[in-house]
Simulated scan of single mutants.
Amino acid sequence: MAKMVLLAEYVALNGTDLSNYVKKAELTTKVEEKEVTTYGSQGWKEVLGGLKSGELALEFIQDLAASALDSIMWPLLGTVVTFQVRADNSPVGTSNPSYSGSVLINGWNPIQGSVGDEATVGVSFPTSGAVSRATA
């Protein structure tokens, strides 16, 4: 099994490469657990998969300058936009799959932190529709 260190993740929202602002990116997907236990299950719980969902959590280094991060993200508030993430910014391939779909920009925290902290923005956006994995 190959080991890897994340050094150059690729993160794009609404077709804009935001990798230079991203400090941390996590894409999670899950499936609802639906219990279908019957007396015929003989005391064992049985489950089936229900609806799928996902979340894209990002931590940005904030930049309030004109044409920088805040001016890119603010107009997206309340909209559903495309996303693409991959472990490395090199081309998509079997060792560097791309995960893509759409997310709802359901919040934006332009200013957060305490005295002496770096200016970061932590957000979590729910996916809207299918999340795809591509290797080509």
Score class of each variant (00 low, 15 high):
A2C: 07
K24Y: 12
P97L: 07
V5H: 10
W44S: 13
G78Q: 05
L48T: 15
D88I: 04
V36I: 15
V92R: 04
S98W: 07
S100W: 01
N109G: 10
Y99F: 13
D17L: 07
G93Q: 06
L51R: 13
G101K: 06
A65H: 08
N20W: 00
W44C: 10
Q112H: 07
D70A: 11
G113K: 03
A130V: 12
N106I: 10
E35N: 09
T29F: 05
L51D: 12
A8N: 15
G43R: 02
G93V: 04
G93D: 11
V81Y: 08
D63F: 04
G15A: 02
E26W: 09
L27K: 02
L18N: 01
G93I: 05
N20P: 01
L56A: 01
A134G: 03
A119Y: 11
L69K: 00
Y39L: 14
D63V: 02
T16Y: 07
Y10E: 05
V31M: 05
G101A: 06
L76S: 02
E9G: 15
G107N: 10
G107F: 06
G122A: 15
I105M: 09
W44R: 12
W108M: 05
M4I: 15
T127L: 02
V11P: 01
Q42M: 10
K3V: 13
S90C: 10
L48S: 13
N109R: 10
E55Y: 07
A136P: 03
V115T: 05
S114K: 14
K45V: 12
T79W: 03
E46A: 11
Q42N: 13
P97A: 09
M4D: 14
N109P: 09
A134Y: 00
L58C: 00
K30F: 12
T127A: 03
N20F: 03
P75T: 07
V103H: 04
L77G: 12
P75S: 08
L104W: 05
I105V: 14
T82Y: 07
N106S: 14
I72R: 02
V115L: 06
F83R: 00
T29A: 08
N96A: 02
L58R: 00
L51K: 14
L13W: 01
E118I: 13
N109M: 10
S71K: 05
G93Y: 05
F125L: 07
V85D: 02
V31G: 06
A65M: 06
I72F: 04
A57C: 02
G101N: 04
K45R: 11
K30M: 11
E33W: 09
S124A: 14
A130E: 14
L104V: 02
V92D: 03
G116C: 09
S132R: 06
G116F: 07
S41K: 06
E33I: 14
A119W: 12
A87K: 15
V36S: 10
A130T: 14
A25Y: 06
